[in-house]
Design a binder for these strands. Structure first.
Lengths: 168, 168
DNA sequence: CCGAATTTTCAAAATATACTGAAAGATAGA
DNA sequence: TCTATCTTTCAGTATATTTTGAAAATTCGG
């Protein structure tokens, strides 16, 4: 397979993959493109390569920057802004975990804390089932939260341990 | 907070949470409802509780059954079908991991294997960056795949280890 | 086998999400 | 400061996804 075709397949599949995880197709595709591009690219480069509008490109680059996955780069002598993606996949994963934890897991845990204190008689099976379920989700969530913190700090844990051997 | 209100908040937030992870709102809400319901429910119960149509209810229940998160239950003397959700959260998580691995991770790994064999001169920096990126994603993915297998088998690993202490 | 009860299907409608492109805003060199 | 270049915004449009509801299919007791 030729590079051009391989690149297209990678980008298109990465986009589809992203949509299964609540990430919009274009954002995932821009990320994929930058991941496999050796040099920083401009908005116009990206627009052209992916056949998308200026507005769309701009919006999704910004979002990628917010997620900490893409950086703005200024090349001396160039007026335009260039963009580049972090290539160390372990860092990419860590960054995504960090953000999703903050945006989704933590608010969910706060909610569960609140819901666990529902009024009512624990002998009522409806109350009991509700409290038990919420409580077990909360516990699992808290545990995951702690573990992910450890992973982010990249100091211990099996996952980091086994992966660090491969990547560092 | 009263049970009714708590239940509603749980269901509605679980639905919103799901959408961030590529799961449709209704499916997540039905799951949430069944999770906190002590007894099996019929389609009509669910329709009424969540104010959704028969078709929608039916389709999403089926999908939850496909995911292995909900079971059809036949109560003796009852013509209607009843539905119930697995309440053991660890089993729920394992089941979701198992399915997503099969549906998303494995196909992605197959693609990456193929793409890593792109033609071309490795000294060309475009080829090199492509191959390096694909290769590092593939390696991380393979590692994750193995680890998740272990987690599914629930026989070892930090995560299981630390969680099993809490849940079993 | 009949027919009422129940479940499933799916085309059409509703809703939610993403994308475009032109205009406004910002920036930097002359 | 002025102007050409580049970036950002956002209302309108397009696309994708979800939901409805009525009709078709299935099921089960008699």
């Amino acid at each position: 397979m030729k590079l051009t075709e391989a690149k297209q397949q990678f980008i298109s599949n990465w986009g589809a993959f992203g949509t299964h995880w609540g990430i919009n197709r274009t954002m995932a595709q821009i990320h994929a493109l930058l991941l496999v591009s050796p040099d920083p690219m401009t908005q116009d480069d990206i627009m052209e390569e992916l056949n998308i509008s200026r507005g769309n490109t701009n919006m999704n680059i910004r979002e990628l920057i917010n997620w900490g996955l893409v950086d703005r780069v200024l090349l001396s002598g160039e007026r335009k802004e260039f963009f580049t993606a972090e290539k160390d996949i372990w860092k990419v994963v860590t960054q995504i975990v960090k953000e999703r934890k903050k945006r989704e897991l933590e608010p969910m845990l706060q909610l569960l804390d609140k819901l666990e204190n529902v009024e009512g008689d624990k002998k009522d099976k409806h109350v009991k089932t509700f409290v038990d379920t919420v409580s077990s989700i909360r516990k699992l969530g808290r545990q995951a939260d702690k573990t992910l913190d450890r992973m982010i700090r990249a100091e211990e844990s099996w996952f980091v341990g086994s992966l660090i051997k491969i990547f560092k």
